[in-house]
């Protein structure tokens, strides 16, 4: 199949095909799954937290409303890198603290100079656990943005329509579900598409959590190698691998745009003239 390529480009092609499909590179390609999974799971969590946050923010009960406002304003203000480091660690240590209450004796807990106080209370975080925690972190951070977008979109639905619906005899729930939420998506989708893109870009932070993700592998594969026994001898190739990551992220952006356009058409049926 590659004969015409070899003919066109010379024998080097065979060498490069082999190099680019060795175990190290296959592991690099496979690591894209972490990024994609974290993006999708993060978005799912983000939507849940966003809808929850917006609901709290719009609650008629003041303490709940304050909780929603607190979530939206505090979490939006914290840099995502910091939150990414803070949340999984805090969560892990909280769990270990709870385990330690049962697993370690009181004397050991009080005398302990290290964490966790006894070996039984250690919670080992592997890639799966870190991936889940990373997704929840992404969801929490970008959920706050999504909550703000959804809250704004709910306010953007013309009040006159809601009043008219009430006047037609619809119940409060029917107005909320059939009129306000139904039309809210049209106003929310452009903002949510922005939030999604920011969230997906933040998946490049996964290597901070000991996940062997695409950034880590790009670093490893691109690092110069001077020892023949270790593999192909080459200089600093990191920029080439970073370029591959650039292209990947741009590709995802392009696909996302298409996807959101489709969603917009669906959400806008009967509302937007151009949606038909």
């Amino acid at each position: 199949m590659l004969e015409w390529l070899t003919a066109a480009l010379g024998d080097d092609v065979g060498f490069w095909v082999e190099y680019l499909t060795n175990g190290k590179h296959l592991a690099f390609y496979a690591s894209f799954r972490f990024t994609i999974l974290a993006g999708i799971l993060g978005a799912a969590f983000g939507l849940v937290f966003g809808l929850g946050g917006a609901t709290l923010r719009r609650s008629g009960f003041a303490p709940l409303r304050w909780l929603g406002m607190g979530y939206i304003n505090v979490v939006r203000g914290v840099p995502d890198v910091l939150f990414f480091l803070f949340f999984p660690l805090a969560f892990e240590q909280a769990v270990e603290w709870i385990i330690a209450l049962n697993a370690c004796s009181a004397e050991v807990r009080e005398a302990a100079t290290r964490w966790p106080p006894c070996a039984e209370a250690n919670w080992f975080l592997g890639t799966t656990e870190y991936l889940l925690l990373a997704s929840v972190s992404l969801g929490l951070v970008y959920g706050a943005f999504a909550a703000n977008v959804i809250n704004g979109a709910m306010n953007a639905v013309p009040r006159g329509q809601l009043e008219a619906a009430r006047a037609y005899g619809m119940s409060r729930f029917q107005v909320l579900w059939g009129i306000q939420i139904r039309q809210m998506w049209v106003y929310a989708l452009p903002g949510l598409s922005n939030v999604w893109m920011l969230l997906f870009k933040a998946t490049s932070l996964l290597s901070l959590l000991q996940i062997a993700d695409i950034v880590l592998w790009a670093d490893r594969l691109g690092a110069p190698n001077f020892i023949a026994r270790v593999g192909l001898v080459h200089g600093d190739w990191r920029w080439r691998y970073y370029l591959v990551l650039f292209i990947f992220y741009i590709l995802v952006t392009w696909l996302s745009e298409k996807f959101f356009k489709m969603l917009m058409r669906r959400a806008g049926r009967g509302i937007l003239a151009e949606a038909g």
Binding site: G23, K24, R220, N225, G231
Partner: peptide, 17 residues
């Protein structure tokens, strides 16, 4: 560590060597 050749590094097969 898997990043300190020739002590320990990622081999071409993607495993530590």
């Amino acid at each position: 560590e898997g990043a300190y050749a020739p002590w320990n590094f990622m081999g071409d097969d993607g495993e530590v060597d």
